[in-house]
Amino acid sequence: MAEQVALSRTQVCGILREELFQGDAFHQSDTHIFIIMGASGDLAKKKIYPTIWWLFRDGLLPENTFIVGYARSRLTVADIRKQSEPFFKATPEEKLKLEDFFARNSYVAGQYDDAASYQRLNSHMNALHLGSQANRLFYLALPPTVYEAVTKNIHESCMSQIGWNRIIVEKPFGRDLQSSDRLSNHISSLFREDQIYRIDHYLGKEMVQNLMVLRFANRIFGPIWNRDNIACVILTFKEPFGTEGRGGYFDEFGIIRDVMQNHLLQMLCLVAMEKPASTNSDDVRDEKVKVLKCISEVQANNVVLGQYVGNPDGEGEATKGYLDDPTVPRGSTTATFAAVVLYVENERWDGVPFILRCGKALNERKAEVRLQFHDVAGDIFHQQCKRNELVIRVQPNEAVYTKMMTKKPGMFFNPEESELDLTYGNRYKNVKLPDAYERLILDVFCGSQMHFVRSDELREAWRIFTPLLHQIELEKPKPIPYIYGSRGPTEADELMKRVGFQYEGTYKWVNP
């Protein structure tokens, strides 16, 4: 592979701008107003304001973009700056750019259920340069409990009458099928589907988006991507930290609602779906819905739930269990780990287990898709061969690698495990991989909904998990304890083995 010439960040961002501006969906010269509902909250200060700053800094926003914060707290732009700027990672050389960014910011205080507050917000936006005809993007960085009041008031008082209007809704989209349907029906009564952007930030990850290209742009994968060759698929999300004093919020939802029903299920769809007619948003989402419709409700015998306990040999936070978090209700049975087996009941995947695993306070930070292939028929190497695996590593250190057998150097035919490896950090030294939120917010500006969740996708996802969630809430089974920093409950490994996964433990990928 030829040595790549190092590029400056300015040059890299210039390439990104060229890609972005050559499309006809990006209205570079139009006025846009980006409204952050819930501007005083954690999500706004840690993710949304920093993301908008990065896009502005790199010249990736339309030229005439204004940012308006809205929340109940009586704040000023200076207050917003004070709480969000520490997350910007701005350099001293960017000081003038930073001043320009905050000059485009404003803030309006108001209630979430008060019509007069929204009329005041609308008047404020109209007073901005060309504000009355601007395109408006409303980001709901809010708890779902206020979605209905907020969307109703936005629709009645704050819509642009000339430009387009788009609304970005953060997960969780309800707690179960019934609450999700209620919320979807409410929002759909106010906005068209092409105006609604239900954001799952995992769909903005580079390697998640790469799944489609790997599958449908490489001839070698087509013939082997089926039940005849693939023994099982494992989708993993692991965090090495616990709730760390923020367990009160987590306890309301648990690990299945927080990660599995959305992030992991979306990745499953991209692995299992048929080739779409095109890369058009609805063509892709149509195929994802077909996959979900082929999955039956989760069966309790295919589920393992766990909850982390303190590690007596650990240090600091590792010595504390979930129930030691003062914000967690006493005696909570909320799971911090889950392993679930699903089956896609169609011709391509009949009988292939899709194993979804996620948890907190585990032994490493990792998100990946792992396809394990069947054993080689007619073994001539005296059971020395391990199964081939194709691994798409989402985070950290984005990579695609194939675990395969090669001859060990020497005189004899002794096979050993090795890999074919594409590590993004080595291959793409001159490429700026956008943060997931950067990519998705740019998608909203461009009107691309491919990486957002459609209402029928959402409904099918909740259909699969709601009976299990209701059973857990009714019966309150005690989750299996696992030690902070471990791989999780051993019962999860036993479940995976029972459905056909072979864990060798003899080879570990190392970032080159």
Rank of each mutant, 00 (worst) to 15 (best):
Ser84Met: 11
Gly222Trp: 09
Thr65Pro: 06
Val169Pro: 01
Asp251Asn: 14
Leu98Lys: 05
Arg215Asn: 00
Ala109Phe: 11
Ala39Cys: 08
Thr145Phe: 11
Pro50His: 04
Tyr107Cys: 09
Phe56Gly: 02
Ser73Thr: 11
His201Phe: 04
Leu16Glu: 11
Thr91Met: 14
His186Asn: 11
Phe21Ser: 14
Thr236Leu: 05
Gly174Lys: 02
Glu244Trp: 13
Gln133Pro: 10
Gly23Ser: 15
Asp176Gln: 04
Ala217Met: 06
Ser132His: 15
Asp42Ala: 01
Arg219Ala: 12
His124Lys: 12
Arg120Phe: 10
Leu235Asp: 00
Ile230Gln: 00
Arg120Trp: 12
Phe237Glu: 01
Asp251Ala: 06
His129Trp: 12
Val233Gln: 03
Tyr112His: 00
Ile167Leu: 12
Glu239Phe: 01
Leu130Thr: 15
Asn153Arg: 13
Thr243Tyr: 06
Leu190Ser: 08
Phe56Ser: 04
Ile196Asp: 00
Val213Gln: 09
Phe138Arg: 02
Tyr118Met: 07
Glu18Tyr: 07
Ala71Glu: 02
Tyr49Pro: 01
Tyr107Trp: 09
Thr51Gln: 11
Glu206Trp: 07
Arg57Thr: 02
Ser29Cys: 15
Asp100Cys: 11
Ala109Gly: 14
Cys232Phe: 01
Ile33Phe: 11
Ile168Ala: 14
Gln22Lys: 12
Phe250Ala: 05
Ile67Trp: 05
Ile234Gly: 07
Asn153Cys: 11
Ala78His: 08
Arg166Met: 04
Asp79Val: 08
Ile33Asp: 03
Glu206His: 07
Ile196Asn: 00
Glu193His: 03
Lys205Trp: 00
His201Asn: 03
Leu75Ile: 14
Gly14Tyr: 10
Glu244Val: 14
Ser117Asp: 15
Asp113Gln: 11
Gly69Pro: 04
Phe253Ile: 05
Leu121Trp: 01
Glu94Cys: 10
Val146Glu: 06
Asn165Met: 11
Ser123Ile: 13
His27Trp: 12
Asp24Ile: 11
Ala90Tyr: 09
Lys82Trp: 11
Ala217Thr: 11
Asp113Glu: 11
Met159Glu: 14
Ala231Ile: 07
Phe88Ala: 04
Gln11Leu: 11
Phe253His: 06
Arg136Val: 09
Phe21Gln: 10
Glu99Phe: 06
Glu19Cys: 15
Ile33Leu: 12
Arg136Ala: 08
Arg120Gly: 15
Ser184Phe: 11
Arg9Asp: 15
Pro240Met: 09
Gln11Asp: 15
Leu43Ala: 01
Cys232Gln: 14
Ala39Leu: 06
Ile230Lys: 00
Arg182Gln: 15
Phe56Val: 04
Pro240Gly: 10
Val108Phe: 12
Leu55Pro: 02
Ala127Asn: 12
Asn185Gly: 13
Arg57Ile: 05
Val208Asn: 13
Asp42Leu: 03
Ile168Gln: 00
Cys232Pro: 07
Ser160Tyr: 06
Leu142Ser: 00
Phe26Pro: 13
Gly174Tyr: 00
Ser117Tyr: 12
Asp176Cys: 12
Asn185Met: 12
Met37Lys: 02
Lys95Ala: 15
Pro92His: 15
Tyr249Trp: 00
Leu98Val: 14
Ser184Ile: 13
Pro223Met: 08
Ala149Glu: 14
Ser157Cys: 15
Thr31Tyr: 12
Phe237Met: 09
Glu93His: 12
Arg74Glu: 15
Trp225Asp: 01
Ile167His: 04
Thr91Trp: 09
Pro143Arg: 03
Gly245Val: 01
Lys89Ile: 08
Gly38Lys: 03
Asp181Ile: 05
Lys171Tyr: 04
Asp181Leu: 09
Ser188Asn: 11
Cys232Glu: 07
Ile224Glu: 06
Lys152Phe: 13
Gly242Cys: 03
Glu170Asn: 03
Leu211Trp: 02
Gln178Thr: 14
Gly59Asn: 14
Lys47Val: 01
Pro62Val: 00
Asp42Glu: 00
Trp225Tyr: 06
Ala44Tyr: 03
Ile80Leu: 14
Asp114Gly: 11
Ser106Met: 09
Pro62Lys: 07
Val108Ser: 07
Ser117Phe: 10
Ala134Leu: 09
Asn126Pro: 05
Met207Asn: 10
Glu244Arg: 09
Lys205Ser: 01
Ala231Gly: 09
Tyr197Cys: 05
Ala103Gly: 12
Gln83Asn: 07
Ser132Thr: 15
Pro50Ile: 01
Gln11Met: 11
Tyr249Thr: 02
Phe66Arg: 13
Leu121Lys: 02
His155Glu: 08
Glu239Ser: 06
Phe102Thr: 02
Arg219Thr: 10
His155Met: 09
Gly110Leu: 03
Leu20Asp: 09
Glu63Phe: 12
Phe56Gln: 04
Asp114Ile: 11
Ser73Cys: 06
Gln133Ala: 10
Thr51Ile: 08
Val12Glu: 10
Asp24Asn: 14
Met159Asn: 10
